[in-house]
């Protein structure tokens, strides 16, 4: 396959970036999208040019490191997969492919296609945990948890923190990510103890990071590679409402 790539190049956070055209040839449909970029990068290095910086690590859809806004959609044209799982057979010979970084005020660009997602870490630090110290736990089977709750908590917990929800959302809102964590912990008895403070603090941090407001467009859930459901956003809305109304602080 021969493809035209229009890739966002930006030296660093401060400098202006622009789309640059590249032609890649002899691309096998069995290649993954990132392997296609590897091929391009090798040829750039051989020419003495700077390779395209992009984030990736596990390349099997679980670490959440890869990103890329491909032809107007986070993680490319397929749903339920990350960029690293996308294969070139999803494209046709002669296609033009736009590749851009996640764009959000809260995710500043570091270089080319690499953005800084540390805002997510700070949101988790604001309350995305259960305060239990090592060694303080009781027997794991002491609290039975209804299977449906456990399954829902698990489904929410599969979020890989990739940020595609923010990238997809027209408002660059982080609601899906935050609500996934709030939901996971709110569904489990262990997490209920701190539920109120958790949701208040995490939302506060989310706002401080400069994410937009959710207007329920639902793009996040469609594009989420782990298919995190909008149920979680609704659950967080409930949790938050409860916490604000019924709060003695």
């Amino acid at each position: 396959m021969k493809l035209t790539l229009k890739i966002w190049r930006q030296k660093n956070a401060k400098e202006q970036g622009k789309l640059v055209d590249y032609i890649v040839d002899h691309i096998s449909p069995d290649m993954s999208f990132l392997e296609m970029l590897d091929v391009l990068n090798e040829s750039l290095v051989e020419k003495g040019e700077e390779p395209i910086a992009f984030d990736h690590d596990c390349r099997e859809g679980i670490c959440g490191m890869c990103s890329l806004y491909i032809n107007g959609r986070p993680h490319g044209p397929q749903t339920g997969v990350t960029t690293c799982q996308l294969h070139m057979r999803s494209f046709k010979d002669g296609d033009t492919i736009y590749i851009e970084p996640w764009r959000a005020a809260a995710f500043p660009i570091i270089k080319d296609l690499v953005v800084d997602r540390s805002a997510f870490d700070r949101i988790i630090q604001a309350g995305g945990y259960i305060s239990v110290n090592t060694g303080a736990a009781q027997d794991a089977n002491a609290i039975p948890i209804p299977k449906p709750d456990a399954d829902k908590a698990f489904a929410a917990a599969t979020c890989i923190g990739c940020g595609a929800c923010v990238a997809a959302c027209k408002n660059a809102s982080a609601m899906l990510f935050v609500s996934a964590k709030v939901s996971q912990l709110a569904l489990l008895p262990q997490g209920k103890v701190e539920a109120k403070d958790r949701v208040l603090n995490m939302v506060k941090q989310m706002d401080e990071e400069g994410f937009g407001n959710c207007t329920n467009t639902g793009a996040c859930a469609v594009e989420c590679p782990k298919e995190i459901s909008l149920d979680n956003i609704a659950r967080m809305n409930r949790e938050y409402l409860k916490a604000t109304i019924n709060n003695d602080k």
Partner: peptide, 13 residues
């Protein structure tokens, strides 16, 4: 396992 469950790790049930 105790520690992880207390942290909210959603093991299969």
């Amino acid at each position: 396992i105790d520690q992880c469950v207390a942290q909210g790790v959603p093991f299969a049930r």
